[in-house]
Design a protein around this nucleic acid. Sequence first.
DNA 1: AGAAACCCTGTAGTTACTACAGAGTCAAGG
DNA 2: CCTTGACTCTGTAGTAACTACAGGGTTTCT
Lengths: 149, 149
Amino acid sequence: MRIGELGQAAGVDVETIRFYEKSGLLPAPARSENGYRAYGSTHLERLAFIRHCRALDIPLSEVQRLLEFVEHPNADCGDIDQLIDTQLAKVRARLKSLKALEKQLSSLRGRCGAKHIAGECGILHELVAAAHKEACVCHGHFEPKTLAT
Amino acid sequence: MRIGELGQAAGVDVETIRFYEKSGLLPAPARSENGYRAYGSTHLERLAFIRHCRALDIPLSEVQRLLEFVEHPNADCGDIDQLIDTQLAKVRARLKSLKALEKQLSSLRGRCGAKHIAGECGILHELVAAAHKEACVCHGHFEPKTLAT
DNA sequence: AGAAACCCTGTAGTTACTACAGAGTCAAGG
DNA sequence: CCTTGACTCTGTAGTAACTACAGGGTTTCT
Ligand SMILES: [Zn+2]
Ligand SMILES: [Zn+2]
Ligand SMILES: [Zn+2]
Ligand SMILES: [Zn+2]
């Protein structure tokens, strides 16, 4: 199996495959006489595993760790749950902040109705005003002297 | 106002401020005799605006465009709504995929109960199995020959 | 034989910062 | 007067996970 076929089979760009190899995630395959990489089915499995994890937004460094578990099945699994827990917590945190973001943006969107000049655009006004506010929730405004806890 | 004070006032790291200047988002301020940057209140306003937009996850290139609108208030505002619309669409798309992700991860998490060796961990099994599936939803498996549309 | 399509290595670009390295400036304390 | 510490300056390199060449060699099809 050459790199292009592997890429086709796994739905991955060839450059990405070479990148995974360089990063130590995918073992360097044998080379055929012409120097082309020659992959076997284990490579396809491993690549699919990596892509599946990436689809779960698991960072490559953690995928690396998971792959080590796959290869050393006698290790204690405690770290696996923790890895997933961490990932889940990250996703939930991001979800929460994205929901807040959606609210902000859609309320912002409502500020502009018909066409007009930028100087009278409610969106722009709101953005400028919000940036002025002391109590702006979204970005970390704070009085450095008054509230130095 | 020196760069450190500006950073304090806006809640932004000094390196980030210099980065914004280099990127053309924050105008280069005057320099005092010793070569230190000397900022005024307009810089603080502008910086706050940038941070507010960034908190809305608006990319710097779009923040740049918004700043141009702020400076040319006579321009047509049509592009502003569109910018926000685009941003909103991106956020909603990300929100949708994150929700799916959360579902996957939490179901995955349920696969592992008590402690055991990695070879018997339901999480790991599931990850490996899912990567094998033809119909894996999350990452783009596809039969290149059979379904070549 | 010649062109298209594939493969190789290595480097640089993307985003939005963050982290130095190495040097200069300034106020306060001993 | 000298030193220490906090601040500032420039410029470069690193982060995550790819993506996009440049400049070559090889295979395959016609
Ligand atoms: Zn998958
Ligand atoms: Zn408008
Ligand atoms: Zn804000
Ligand atoms: Zn387990």
